Simulated scan of single mutants.
Amino acid sequence: MRHVLVTGAGSGIGREIALAFARRGEALTVADLHAEPLAETAALALDAGAPSCATTTVDLREADAPADLMRTAWSTAPVDVLVSSAGVYPATPFLDLDAHTWDRVLDVNTRAPVLLTVALARRAIEAGRPASVVNISSGAALRARPGAAPYSTSKAALEAATRASALELGPHGIRVNAVSPGFVTVDSRVNPVTDEYAAAVGDTPLGRRGTPADIARAVVWLAGGEAEWITGEVLRVDGGSSTGAWHLPQHWAATGQGEHE
């Protein structure tokens, strides 16, 4: 039995990740900004098979929050798996950006996962224990979107930090990877999206939007023993949406006879 810490576990992808580990009989610490949905996640996790599920409310915008959260989780039991799922993605036109908006997104989406990894690694190395980290990235790391300059930047930076930390922590037996979801339908009061936006980004080569369970299965696998020789990787779980501009019309005649020079 391992001890798994999941941030952003109050709803959506984070909650489903916690429940996926619970169904495997793992002990949990779940963290989120809001206490009420976090308590709901804990109750569901215990019903799903988790032997224990501690809850911690945390504001990851605070500089000391990652270290404090890891200290709290570790005091229950050494943390074997860290999943950084907490994230914010406000829609802000580029010309409306200010320092507060930029810093809020980068602090939660990039700085907090990095500092959580640092806090885990320090304790794991001191204890002589292996550990596995899975960061939740986004397709926005590869493709910018209107209104998402800080979000795209934060996820691109997170993927770079995933590789950098994997490089330095690998010799200590600590693996660091990321899962990059495509558009996933969730009910989030922190990060709501419009129906128009969902329709525009939710089309994939596999013909459907993603679900939190799609992402959770990938996270559980990547954090487990079957992936023990994988580190520094970004697993894109997006229904094929990152393969290219598949939905564009063909640029040659209907006969298929293109012209060549």
Rank of each mutant, 00 (worst) to 15 (best):
S241T: 14
A99C: 03
G10N: 12
A254M: 12
E16N: 03
P113N: 02
I17L: 02
G202R: 04
G224A: 05
T7H: 01
P181C: 03
S154K: 05
G10K: 03
R23M: 07
A198W: 10
E259T: 13
L82Y: 04
T29S: 10
G147V: 13
V176A: 09
G139Q: 09
S138W: 09
V237A: 14
R122F: 03
A31N: 00
T92M: 14
T92C: 09
D103H: 11
D80P: 05
M70V: 09
S242E: 10
T231C: 06
L116T: 04
C53S: 04
W74E: 06
D32Y: 02
A200N: 09
C53P: 08
R71G: 15
G139M: 10
T101V: 11
A156R: 10
A9T: 03
R71D: 15
Y151T: 03
E36G: 08
L5K: 00
I125M: 15
L158T: 04
T211N: 10
A65Q: 07
L5W: 08
L69Y: 07
N191I: 08
R23E: 13
E36C: 07
V58T: 13
T55H: 01
A77S: 08
F183Y: 15
W221G: 07
G147I: 11
T211R: 14
S138N: 12
G182Y: 11
S188K: 01
P249G: 07
W102A: 03
V186N: 02
G170Q: 06
R163D: 02
V30H: 08
S180F: 07
T76F: 00
T7P: 13
T56R: 15
S180K: 11
L28M: 02
N135K: 01
C53D: 07
S180H: 05
V193W: 11
D64Y: 08
F21R: 05
E26Y: 04
